[in-house]
């Protein structure tokens, strides 16, 4: 009561009003410390500064990619449940990147689009998120929020896309032109007046930008992609490719078991002994398979 009296003298308010206000504030802070936290990743993504490759690229965003989210359950009272939805931001970001990187991009959502653009599409790209890990300061005691992602990109010929009886699109992995992983890392330090959610969002945006930078700088260097680009160049002389994507001697494609995968439901499997980059967070992973 004495403290409230002193405070009431300073702020010229009734002690009970101040006490109730402070009580409410503390309760709010306590409640905010435990519940679940949700982030819908949002950001402004710049167009890449590139000479577009003279190609028409088909893009299929599988539903697991376009609606990607991960959920991590709290492991103790001091932690919170986390639900991070990256799907919308993924589609927005990769649309912007592909739009600046290729002369024309065709979004393939149905068989009609496949039929209509079959003649002009040079290849169909199908991205997938293989794994996502994150850390927040409550996990590590380090004042940094981190997100690490591993993508699996597949490039297939338009002829490898088929229609199922139910209308869904599928593709035969054996007919792929290339498959390659892309890793991405984003971090952001804690900042005054920045909530956990804002910091995780920012780390996710940084990771997306990093994924784009990694994709652009390694695309032409993938052996199978180089073979594909060379084949297109020899077919459509004189072909022009950007100097930012150096061509390399390609290795022959590896043999894979014949199977049919649904493009819309495609998932990637994770090998337990898979290597991670040195700067990847080590705790709290949520693979695409765990996404709810």
């Amino acid at each position: 009561m004495g403290v409230a009296s002193l405070a009431s003298t300073i702020f010229d308010l009734e002690p009970s009003v101040i006490g109730r206000g402070l009580l409410l504030l503390c309760l709010t802070l306590l409640i905010a410390g435990c519940g679940s936290k949700q982030v819908i990743v949002e950001g402004n993504f710049p167009e890449p500064l590139l000479d577009p490759l003279p190609l028409t690229l088909g893009v299929i965003y599988p539903s697991a990619f376009a609606e990607h989210e991960f959920f991590d359950e709290a492991k103790g009272r001091a932690e919170s449940d986390w639900l991070v939805k990256t799907g919308e931001a993924q589609v927005e970001f990769w649309d912007t990147l592909f739009g600046g990187m290729f002369a024309k991009v065709v979004h393939i959502r149905d068989w009609e689009t496949v039929e209509r653009h079959r003649a002009e599409i040079d290849g169909v790209l199908i991205p997938a998120i293989g794994e996502l890990q994150y850390t927040v300061p409550t996990h590590t005691n380090v004042k940094i929020y981190e997100i690490w992602m591993r993508y699996e990109f597949r490039l297939v010929d338009i002829s490898a896309i088929h229609q199922q009886e139910d209308g869904a699109l599928t593709f035969n992995p054996d007919e792929r032109l290339a498959t390659w992983p892309i890793t991405a890392y984003g971090k952001t330090p804690t900042a005054f007046l920045q909530t956990d959610e804002e910091a995780v969002n920012l780390a996710a945006v940084v990771a997306l930008r990093d994924a784009g930078a990694h994709f652009v700088t390694t695309f032409g260097a993938q052996p199978d992609i180089a073979l594909w680009l060379n084949a297109i160049a020899s077919r459509e002389l004189p072909a022009e490719t950007s100097s930012s994507m150096p061509e390399t001697d390609g290795a022959p494609p590896t043999d894979t078991p014949v199977a049919t995968e649904s493009a819309a439901e495609m998932t990637t499997t994770t090998s337990p002994d898979e290597q991670q980059p040195a700067n990847a967070p080590s705790a709290n992973s949520a693979s695409a398979g765990e996404a709810s």
Binding site: N44, P46, E47, P48, L49, R209, D210, G212, A213, H214, V216, T217
Partner: peptide, 12 residues
């Protein structure tokens, strides 16, 4: 950095 994306990202 946005105008020169992706050439001035931490990676590049």
């Amino acid at each position: 950095i946005n105008q020169f994306y992706p050439w001035f990202e931490p990676r590049t």
